[in-house]
Design a protein around this nucleic acid. Structure first.
Lengths: 203, 203
DNA sequence: CATGAATATGAATTCATATTCATATGAAAC
DNA sequence: GTTTCATATGAATATGAATTCATATTCATG
């Protein structure tokens, strides 16, 4: 958690620091990201940085918190609250689309999450022993779908949850990388969802 | 490329160095992997390391070459040579299964590839401007499948190629991580392939 | 054996960064 | 206007590698 001094700062200054941090962490793996550069970019002295944060990790953790919060804000909250009103494929679709909306609006944030996902030691330091959250989420969704009778009962929820996560990562990555892809044209994405749906559906 | 001195070394010593390097790179992201530790582990002096390799990257590139070579060796070579004898789903299945066999036999190598895949700057240094090889491979496979009439023509080969790659990564990762999973029992994997097949098939 | 070229060695150097700290600044309180 | 406290600063320090280099050792060859 950042120190009080950080939260006492004018919002504008806080934001400058956060923006600078995003820039640096988005373009460098955690261990290569430089506090010096963040401070300079934000227009503060290096010493000040340490008035605000205990250390580099402190800032990074805080940043990840913001990121998770922001990402969650993209999921239609009604769907979260009243999951049972929706069928499995509606929910799956919403998760994918929210992930894609998030990626579209926040392309700079994606690499940060990706890099973290691949540095397991770091991941553990930040999130503790939690398993991969999104894989677990998909897993539950699949179990729910099987209970509903919508999903082929022969599907293994755990491994399939992992795969749905991997696919979502690939998809968002693709959308961000391939700049020419127009995310407002959801046709291709719908086709991918259709592909998944066909694969999972009970027949 | 390592220097001649390296290749002049007795095979046994070469192997000790390679093994030590695998250990270090498998457990640390590239930039945190320490030459010192590799040398110590291999039982050579740090100075010797620089008699064999220009620098850390030189060793890493070489290692990646070995890794790619090894991975390719797992693909049934007849299937590569006579691709047209096989239908799309047979080929896809072979690619997945070979990936899984490789993962099963070489669990230590996987994290190295994964880490590289996620450090795009490094990836480019190692492989140049090549696109992601496996995504491209899947893409061609899909185009072939569409030409054959086996694959839904509405599927976008590029994005789907990316997703198949992501899924294969997730799958191998799962298999290695979750130690209790018995890879000889291919039932679950078959079900995943069945899932993919159902999703892609032209109806 | 003697010789020199190739190889081995690890201490010394360099370099890039995180972090600390003594000091300066400024604003509120009296 | 002085005191006090919080905040700001960037030069100094600490750290942790990568890489170099002067020296020692090995080994093939005459």
């Amino acid at each position: 958690m950042p120190k009080d001094t950080f939260f006492n700062l004018p919002k504008e200054k806080q934001e400058r620091i956060i923006e600078a941090a995003i820039d640096e962490f988005a373009t460098h793996p955690y261990h290569l990201a430089r506090v010096t550069v963040i401070a300079e970019q934000a227009g503060i002295a290096v010493g000040s940085f340490y008035q605000y944060f205990a250390d580099k990790k402190d800032l990074f953790k805080y940043l990840m918190g913001l990121l998770v919060e922001k990402k969650l804000s993209y999921i239609n909250s009604d769907m979260v609250k009243n999951q049972d009103k929706y069928d499995f494929f509606q929910l799956l679709r919403e998760v994918y689309l929210s992930g894609i909306r998030f990626a579209k609006d926040n392309p700079r944030l994606l690499p940060i999450g990706l890099m973290l996902a691949n540095d397991k030691a770091l991941y553990r330091e930040i999130f503790g022993e939690y398993e991969d959250q999104s894989a677990a989420f998909f897993q539950h969704l699949l179990e729910y779908g099987q209970a509903q009778g919508a999903i082929d009962p022969a599907i293994d929820p755990k491994i399939t949850g992992k795969m749905l996560t991997g696919m979502l990562y690939s998809l968002t990555d693709f959308i961000v990388e391939d700049g020419k892809f127009d995310p407002d044209d959801m046709a291709i994405i719908d086709r991918m969802l259709y592909f998944i749906e066909n694969g999972l559906k009970k027949r």
